[in-house]
Design a protein around this nucleic acid. Structure first.
Length: 477
RNA sequence: CCGGGUGUGGCGCAGUUGGUAGCGCGCUUGACUGGGGGUCAAGAGGCCGUGGGUUCAAGUCCCGUCACUCGGACCA
């Protein structure tokens, strides 16, 4: 049974979830701490997960027609200042470069916390005609935000991400792009990461600095806290106006284009850890697992075992990412090791199996063991990987269901927030004061106004006034 | 930024009223093993975070400082 704790060294979730999380990050060799607070070394195993995330998402973007670019790391202070809300939102957490060598710079340079300003400045130069639109750009890079409290993957001062920036002729087209990319994120999270998400819109309070509308995918972690896992913003023409991006339309009029931006980060790895992980460590969804199947030979000194294991390895290389571990560790050690690292499938092959022309395959997600004929491996393994993905998704979905509560009154809201962990659904009148009050008295923030609405009642959970919006609330990372 | 915790071999820790550092894991070598972190034997490895102070003597006491970490407040 997978629920039985077989890997020591990792604090159990119930005992201390935060400790469990950092244990997994370190013991599974995803990261190491670096010499600057809030910065992390992403180790080969962790980086390989990111590379898999990147390559899948990148091809999804390209299917939509996006092109990759690279913008500079530095933003001159004057450029950052151009959009008022934007600079107010980010100013408290930017890192500044003030010197080049010994010389003080005439103008401070901000290390990009996000690149809207850079893209706008560039768009201004390259967009002049309706023929230049749309512009569908994306960049993979790192950004810096000087966070006070930091945690691996969830909140680091430097993090890797992708940021899409697009420019469109009409508001309608830009709105469609915003929604399309949110759907790409949701699709990626659910199909590839096996993480169920709630799609919806952020309230004004939680909206991105400078945006007209922010959309989000919200996931629920094992401990009942919410994690914003991807955002897509509609900017209207606010940034265009601030940066004087203009083009001549078909009627020969000088007009402002409409803009979007959208981003996901290495935080997705944190989401994977906290959604699927268990007391034995990491559990990786097959699509992004660096190793999808690990072959552990049993009694490998005995005649024919290593040969057979190698033969299987060569065969499986064609159908999945496979590792053959011929190291001299004991089988038991290897079992624990790859469980800790979340490898979806383990294939055991020993003298007994060889006699039967079979092997034992163990699923990481539920511990299920099956004996598979060596002749059927190439079809059985991909099928089992798919089963793992489906199993992970179902389990996460079930958990979210049981951890989602409805609140009809403020008292109920406080009671749930205090005694239960999870999402709370409740009606909201739309006033900022109620949002602030719920934070104050119940300690919850609004996660999103889900697209899939359900009418729970006619009145705001907080003030009792008329309400027609149902919101997801919760404690968030 | 506020509050708590922790800094001692690679990792986890112990170290009494101050007396010159120890345990477990890991590592190396060898043997026996091998279907859930195996057993035995022999080894290697330490400016006790850092700066100052008290003292004949500081891992231990005092002051400062830095880092990490947890929980808040703020954010992906």
């Amino acid at each position: 049974m997978a629920s039985e704790k077989m890997v020591k060294e990792i604090t159990s979730m119930d005992e201390d979830f935060a400790k469990w999380y950092t244990d997994v990050c370190l013991k599974a060799e995803l990261i190491d701490y670096a010499s600057v607070k809030g910065c992390m070394i992403i180790r080969p195993y962790g980086y390989a997960i990111w590379e898999n995330i990147q390559s899948i998402m990148d091809s999804l973007f390209k299917d939509c027609g996006h092109e990759n670019v690279y913008m500079p790391l530095f933003i001159p202070e004057s450029l950052l200042q151009k959009e008022k809300d934007h600079v107010e939102g980010f100013a408290p957490e930017v890192a500044w470069v003030t010197h080049g060598g010994e010389e003080e710079l005439e103008e401070r340079l901000c290390v990009r916390p996000t690149s809207e300003t850079l893209f706008c400045d560039h768009f201004k130069n390259i967009v002049h005609s309706y023929r230049d639109l749309p512009k569908l750009y994306n960049q993979w890079c790192s950004v810096v935000r000087w966070e006070k409290t930091t945690r691996p993957f969830l909140r680091s001062r430097e993090f890797l991400w992708q940021e899409g920036h697009t420019l469109h002729a009409t508001a309608k087209e830009a709105r469609e792009e915003t929604e399309r990319m949110l759907n790409v994120y949701a699709h990626f999270a659910e199909q590839y990461l096996a993480i169920p998400v709630v799609k919806g819109q952020k309230t004004e309070k939680e909206r991105f600095a400078g945006a007209e509308a922010t959309y989000t995918i919200e996931a629920l972690m094992h401990d009942g806290k919410a994690l914003q896992s991807g955002t897509s913003h509609y900017f209207g023409d606010g940034f265009s106006r601030a940066f004087e991006v203009q083009y001549t339309d078909k009627e020969n009029k000088l007009v402002y284009p409409f803009q979007t931006s959208w981003g996901t980060t290495t935080r997705l790895i944190g989401a994977v850890i906290m959604t699927h992980g268990d007391d034995n460590g990491l559990v990786l969804p097959p699509a992004v697992a660096p190793i999808q199947t690990v072959i552990v030979p049993i009694a490998s000194h005995k005649a024919g075992v290593t040969e057979k294991a190698t033969e299987i390895y060569e065969k499986l290389k064609k159908v999945c990412r496979v590792k053959l571990d011929l190291s001299d560790q004991t089988p038991g050690w290897k079992f624990a090791e790859y469980e800790m690292k979340g490898v979806p499938l383990r294939l055991e092959i020993g003298p007994r199996d060889i006699e039967n022309n079979a092997c034992v395959i163990v699923r990481r997600d539920n511990g299920e063991k099956t004996t598979v004929s060596l002749d059927e491996l190439e079809t059985a393994i991909p099928q089992l990987l798919q089963n793992v993905r489906d199993g992970l998704y179902q389990k996460a979905l079930e958990r979210r269901k049981t951890m989602t509560y409805d609140a009809l009154s403020l008292e109920e809201m406080k009671d749930i927030a205090e005694n239960k962990a999870g999402f709370i659904r409740a009606m909201w009148c739309g006033d900022r004061e109620c949002e602030d009050k719920l934070k104050e008295v119940a300690g919850v923030t609004s996660r999103c106004i889900p697209f899939e609405q359900e009418h729970l009642s006619d009145t705001c959970v907080c003030c009792g006034k008329k309400a027609d919006k149902m919101l997801y609330w919760g404690k968030a990372y």
